[in-house]
C-alpha cells in the first residue's frame, strides 16, 4: 500500500518534472539576470578598483581595509542600528495596539484600516519631501529647520517611518489576531482571566508568528532605509571637525554607500561596493538571527 502510494507520487513527480523547464525556466532566467549574476559580480567588484564596471581591476582586500578605516561609515553604522531598533519598537508596539483595537469590533473599523494603510502607497522619495515640507513648516516658526539639528532629523525620520509602516504591520497583526481560536479566548474568559491576562497570556503567544514577520520586516526595513533618508535630510547637519573630516550626522548606511559610490575618487567605487558587501552580511545576519530566535517562541497550533 505504502509503496504503491509513493510510486504514484513518484510518477506524478516525474510527470511534473518533465515540465520543469517550463515552470521554473522564466523565473530562473529572470532571477539570474536580476539577482544572482549582479550579486556575484558585486562581490567580485568589491575587490576591484573601477570607475566604470567595464574596466575593473582586481586589487584584493584594499577596499575592505579602507572601509574599516572610514569614520563616517562607523558613524553611519551606529546611527542606523539605533534607528532600526527605535523604529522597530515603536512601529510594532503602535501597530499591534491599533490592530488589537480594530479587532474588537468597533464601528468604522474598515474605514480606519484603510486610512492607516494609505501612507504605504506613497513612494519613499515623495514621503521624504512631504515630511520635510511639514517639519520645516512647523520648525520654521521656531526659526529652525530639520537640517540644523541631528535630533530633529532622527525623530523626524522615526515619525515618517511610523506613518508609513504602521498600517502595513497593522494588517499583518490583524490577520494574526483574527486567527486566534475563539474557543481558547472563551475558555480564558470562563476561567476568569482579566482582559490584560488574556492579552498577554493567550492572545500574544498565539500571534507570535505575526510578530516574527513584522519584526523581521521592520528590522530589515530600518537597516535598508534609503529613499526617505536621502529626501528628508540627506545627511545634514554635518559635524565639521578640525582638519576637515566631516561626519554627516543623519546619514544611514545605505546613503553612506550611495554617497561613497558617487564621490570623485579613483578608488571610491570599489570601496562603496565593499561597504555594500559588509552591509549585506550585516543585514542578512541580523535578519536570519532574528528569524531563528523568534521562531522558537512561536506557539504551535
Amino acid at each position: 500500500m505504502k509503496s504503491k502510494k509513493s510510486n504514484a507520487t513518484n510518477s506524478l513527480q516525474k510527470a511534473t518534472r518533465r515540465w520543469g523547464v517550463l515552470f521554473m525556466g522564466p523565473v530562473l532566467i529572470a532571477f539570474i539576470i536580476g539577482f544572482v549574476w549582479p550579486f556575484i559580480q558585486g562581490i567580485w567588484l568589491s575587490m576591484c578598483q573601477f570607475r566604470l564596471i567595464s574596466d575593473a581591476k582586481f586589487i584584493g582586500f584594499d577596499n575592505y581595509v579602507k572601509t574599516f578605516q572610514d569614520a563616517s561609515f562607523r558613524h553611519a553604522f551606529w546611527y542606523t542600528a539605533m534607528f532600526a531598533i527605535v523604529s522597530l519598537v515603536i512601529i510594532n508596539v503602535l501597530a499591534f495596539i491599533v490592530a488589537y483595537i480594530l479587532t474588537l469590533g468597533i464601528k468604522g473599523s474598515n474605514l480606519y484600516r484603510t486610512v492607516f494603510f494609505m501612507p504605504n502607497l506613497i513612494g519613499g522619495i515623495v514621503l521624504g519631501y512631504i515630511w520635510s515640507m511639514i517639519f520645516d513648516g512647523i520648525l520654521g516658526r521656531y526659526q529652525t529647520s530639520i537640517l540644523l539639528e541631528s535630533k530633529y532629523g532622527f525623530w523626524g525620520l522615526i515619525i515618517l517611518m511610523c506613518w508609513q509602516q504602521i498600517g502595513y504591520m497593522m494588517i499583518i497583526y490583524i490577520a494574526g489576531l483574527q486567527n486566534v481560536p475563539g474557543d481558547i479566548l472563551e475558555a480564558a474568559r470562563i476561567d476568569g482571566a482579566t482582559s490584560m491576562q488574556t492579552l498577554f497570556k493567550v492572545t500574544i503567544p498565539n500571534v507570535m508568528s505575526s510578530f516574527t514577520i513584522c519584526i523581521f520586516l521592520s528590522l530589515t526595513n530600518g537597516f535598508k532605509l534609503f529613499d526617505q533618508n536621502l529626501a528628508l535630510t540627506g545627511g545634514q547637519p554635518f559635524i565639521i571637525q578640525e582638519g576637515g573630516t566631516t561626519i554627516k550626522t543623519t546619514e544611514m548606511l545605505a546613503l553612506n554607500i550611495y554617497n561613497t559610490f558617487y564621490s570623485s575618487n579613483t578608488t571610491s567605487q570599489g570601496v562603496a561596493q565593499a561597504k555594500a558587501v559588509i552591509f549585506f552580511i550585516l543585514v542578512a545576519g541580523l535578519g536570519l538571527l532574528q528569524l531563528s530566535y523568534t521562531r522558537k517562541r512561536e506557539v504551535q497550533q
Partner: peptide, 19 residues
C-alpha cells in the same frame, strides 16, 4: 529566493544596472 529578500539593493544596484 528567501536569501534574496535580505540582500540590500545597494549590493546589487550597480552590477544590476550594468547587466
Amino acid at each position: 529566493c528567501v536569501f534574496s529578500m535580505v540582500v540590500p539593493f545597494q549590493m546589487v544596484m550597480f552590477p544590476l544596472s550594468k547587466t
